[in-house]
């Protein structure tokens, strides 16, 4: 027991406090450096996880000098991020929700950028005999056979589309032990489907870059109704004054420009194109 600890203690305490101050300073400086020119883009897991942004963002930076930081969420959450003013640009895929977002004054103007398509994946053995081109017929068969189906159930664009397809197939609200709501992103839902050999609706981009497929294969594809449109919009600076409207607008302008559209078309996995640009000139 040493009571002459005043000096020792002070030295340790001072060192520790100095470290704490240094840590905070480093972080503050880091954040300040980052203030240069960057914008925050709220987008969806399908665009991020498919690797599209890895191709797109460096080209955008080269063209404009602006760094785009992507936060990847489900479409519902991404729009909510825009509504709260936590993003400068929203780049998602749920036309109905996007138009409401703009109509409510949170977005400036919605521009169409590109499309891909949804597919239904399921076990190779296809217990519901759902294989084919018709999405509605396939869903009816899955419901009738009570074969397991994994749903996102997370208010994402894919989830919204899935609910629309069930409705169109005459099934108001799928229910029962066979219908499993994962409440998670596309990847985790595919992991679940793969583990329990369930059917699932997914966008093609995520599927192509998804590795843990197990027994799953594509069951339904090529239906006109499976078209999946992506839109981009600047968050309204009138609602949120801090929105970086010039840099954000540059991003919007660039993705619909010939250069941006060409960059989207050029992105391929194993020779297969993932997204098809269709901005109106």
């Amino acid at each position: 027991m040493d009571l002459n600890i005043a000096m020792n203690f002070r030295r340790l305490a001072v060192t520790w406090m100095a470290a704490a101050v240094a840590a905070s300073t480093i972080l503050a400086v880091k954040d300040a450096n980052a203030q240069e020119t960057f914008i925050t883009v709220a987008s969806t897991t399908s665009t991020e996880q498919s690797g599209l942004f890895k191709q797109l963002l460096p080209e955008f930076k080269k063209a404009t000098g602006i760094e785009a930081r992507v936060v990847a969420l489900g479409t519902g959450q991404a729009l909510d991020m825009g509504r709260r003013g936590d993003a400068d640009v929203v780049f998602v895929h749920d036309k109905v929700a996007e138009e409401k977002f703009v109509a409510d004054g949170f977005g400036v103007k919605r521009l169409e950028v590109m499309y891909n398509d949804f597919i239904v994946v399921g076990p190779k053995a296809d217990p519901a005999a759902a294989k084919g081109k018709d999405i509605l017929a396939a869903l009816k068969k899955i419901e009738a056979s009570k074969a397991p189906f994994a749903s996102r159930a997370d208010k994402s664009g894919t989830h919204a589309a899935e609910l629309r397809y069930w409705k169109a197939a005459g099934i108001e609200k799928p229910q029962g032990a066979w219908y499993r709501e994962t409440g998670s992103g596309m990847g985790p839902t595919l992991n679940t489907a793969s583990a329990m050999n369930a059917y699932a609706l997914t966008d093609r981009g995520t599927w192509l870059s998804f590795k843990n497929r197990g027994e799953l294969v594509i069951v339904v594809e090529g239906d006109q109704r499976l078209f999946n449109q992506y839109g981009v919009m600047l968050v309204n600076p009138a609602k949120h004054a801090h929105v970086k409207k010039e840099a954000g607008q540059k991003f919007v302008d660039w993705v619909v420009s010939p250069a941006g559209q060409a960059a989207i078309a050029a992105y391929k996995i194993d020779g297969e194109q993932l997204f098809f640009p269709n901005a109106k000139p």
Binding site: T40, Q49, F53, V70, N191, K211
Partner: peptide, 24 residues
């Protein structure tokens, strides 16, 4: 953090991302 590539992506969020990409 938002798991932003090159800005706020750390070990744990990178693990979560690779898991959801199915690259176990």
């Amino acid at each position: 953090g938002g798991n932003i590539d090159g800005v706020t992506r750390v070990m744990t969020t990178a693990i979560a991302l690779e898991t959801s990409k199915g690259d176990l």
